[in-house]
Design a protein around this nucleic acid. Structure first.
Lengths: 219, 219
DNA sequence: TGATGAAAAGTGGTCTGACCACTCCTGTCT
DNA sequence: AGACAGGAGTGGTCAGACCACTTTTCATCA
């Protein structure tokens, strides 16, 4: 069908065709895709071309291939993508700040949404997180923010956030210090009261604290 | 060197090797990479393997290839990655409302940023838009919002917004009605005063008006 | 001499066929 | 019934062959 135009990238068409196949056959995360040889036949293309498309998606972390077994629809969290992009893209200082900024946009939006919804801000998960601070003496910043976005129910925002988080190879993995715990507790309290302004202020305070600490450590 | 382990993905090694080559040879944005055949020889790999690595980087938007000419280092800011991911993400039908909401997140964030920056909120572009309403009697919602995001200087956010706009099936090509003009004028006035709350309120009012009109027309 | 244009060289795009290494299933043999 | 060997299926890689396109070269012609 598309053979009429041998010009322009065919492997990009293949990527699109793969999308269709995944959708039409209802392949779920972790599900198996047709073999390379079968795809080549179905899409009327050489196996090399199919492979170029598959390898692209693999580098993006969208699919996963296992020799001897097959090709599978991957889970986002695998992200081979991060390492490569981090290496390539992070050379551009502009992009780095954009990524940070954009991630923050999604985080703040989640806070606002949760704060303004009486249902959401009374979710038991917030109490759980508070309890976790007291018990473990610490809390992952990533966990708190993720739960916020999850609570909003906006899956797209969640995925974008997840991506951005990986982009900014930010050491989200650090534990919170005692100073931070105090801020987080305040943030969660404001949240339960639906005080948008104060919650956002606490959030900003938190971010600044973490950033400044990171700056110190760099020296 | 890496030939010692024929197991595990070699094309990933190639991606790394390419990075080294780019760095060592000081290839700048827009510069030309060695040809596929030369790379194959230098890296002791088949041309297909080299191509798999190159195609991956191309899908990521990191390189650009032109038939008959060669392979070139692309401008990272193109963020082709976002498009590909978006295409995959969007196949979930239940994400339609997510798209609308996420787009709104970016629009509101831009409004807030512009409002809180005395430099940005006094940009001549806002007066131009106000004048445009008086002259043409109308203004494209798309234009206003775009200018807002452009003003923030966050290219990534702009890119994401642009994508989301395309994916929300209903294009916003409609012109504003007289009712809307009044709201837009108020919005721009609040903006110039740096009144975040009121500006956001006007924005919400505007959105609701447009949505309700669209709802009417559907019937 | 200078301009023109055809041939050659270089490059990405694609296909085919052939191996290899690995995994999984199957059926036979003990 | 269990263990094991073999085959089938799959991804990983390579080599070679065309094709389409661009750039360069260089011989030809005015």
């Amino acid at each position: 069908m598309q053979n009429s135009k041998p010009t322009s990238k065919m492997f990009l068409d293949i990527v699109g065709e793969l999308r269709s196949i995944i959708r039409e056959e209802g392949i779920e995360t972790g599900g198996k895709l047709p073999s390379e040889r079968e795809l080549a036949e179905r899409l009327q293309a050489g196996r090399s071309t199919i492979r170029e498309a598959l390898r692209s998606l693999e580098l993006l972390g969208l699919i996963e291939t296992r020799r001897g077994e097959g090709t599978f629809l991957a889970d986002f969290r695998k992200h081979q993508l991060v390492e490569v992009l981090a290496a390539f893209i992070m050379q551009h200082p502009d992009s780095v700040s954009d990524v940070q900024e954009t991630r923050s946009i999604h985080e703040k939006a989640a806070i606002i949404t949760v704060c303004q919804d009486t249902e959401l801000r009374r979710l038991p998960v917030w109490d759980s997180l508070l309890a976790k601070i007291d018990v473990d003496g610490e809390i992952l910043r990533e966990d708190l923010v993720r739960e916020m976005i999850v609570a909003t129910g906006n899956r797209l925002s969640l995925k974008i956030w997840f991506l951005l988080k990986q982009y900014s190879k930010v050491p989200f993995e650090e534990m919170t210090k005692s100073d931070e715990n105090e801020i987080v507790k305040r943030l969660l309290n404001y949240l339960s009261e639906g005080d948008v302004i104060s919650t956002l202020a606490a959030y900003s305070e938190w971010i600044e604290l973490v950033e400044s600490e990171r700056g110190e450590r760099r020296k």
